[in-house]
């Protein structure tokens, strides 16, 4: 299960990147435009909604709880500095997917109890896409976190994130995570389409 987090480069706009990902078989998209105005986000978000409908893909937006309904997104992903999950749940109700960022088992437990529907857990390794992150987890980190999740009996899907490339996926999946979130790995590759094919083999 792979979530594509939007990203832009000199070659690809946000929409280009998402179109490329959907064309390549991705069926779970997160629109992340950290520095964009709400107006730009809304405009792009509406286009992404149409694209995701066409491909039957699940569509999550990053951070902007107040735009979920306007865009018609299926859910929202909340980082550590964004609105607390419980507050977003109160605003959005039970029909919206809420994902939360976690670095430790304690984060996962807190998000689970606050009614999150999935967890983006990371970072796996150093990444230039997102800076100022928590300590790196590596394979061993996921192994121990997932063991805690199983022992606690939390039925919440955990997705690994942060600097993951195609070559990491098979060993990461063995730790018991539900999937992978990717951003830079695809669009920064010399040949994004080939990279995506390589990644989708694990899907």
């Amino acid at each position: 299960m792979i979530q594509f987090i939007s990203h832009h480069t000199e070659r690809y706009t946000y929409l280009d990147g998402i179109r490329l990902a959907l064309d390549g078989g991705i069926r779970w998209v997160q629109l992340r435009m950290k520095d964009a105005s709400d107006e730009d986000f809304l405009r792009t978000g509406r286009e992404v909604r149409k694209l995701c409908d066409r491909y039957n893909a699940t569509f999550i937006i990053d951070d902007r709880v107040e735009l979920v309904r306007e865009i018609g997104a299926d859910g929202v992903h909340l980082g550590k500095k964004d609105m607390p999950i419980a507050e977003a749940r109160r605003m959005l109700g039970n029909n919206v997917i809420i994902g939360g960022t976690a670095n430790t088992f304690e984060d996962i437990e807190a998000h689970y109890r606050a009614s999150a529907n999935y967890i983006g857990c990371g970072p796996f390794r150093f990444t230039t896409t997102k800076q100022g992150l928590s300590p790196l987890l590596g394979i061993e980190g996921y192994r121990s976190i997932m063991q805690n999740v199983r022992e606690a009996g939390f039925d919440i899907p955990v997705v690994a994130i942060g600097g993951i490339t195609a070559d990491d996926i098979s060993s990461l999946m063995l730790t018991g995570i539900a999937g992978i979130a990717l951003s830079g790995a695809i669009l920064r590759a010399d040949n994004p389409i080939e990279e995506l094919k390589k990644i989708m083999k694990y899907e």
Partner: peptide, 10 residues
């Protein structure tokens, strides 16, 4: 089976 949806778990 992995299911990502609202009001899951809990």
């Amino acid at each position: 089976v992995i299911i990502i949806k609202a009001a899951c778990g809990g």
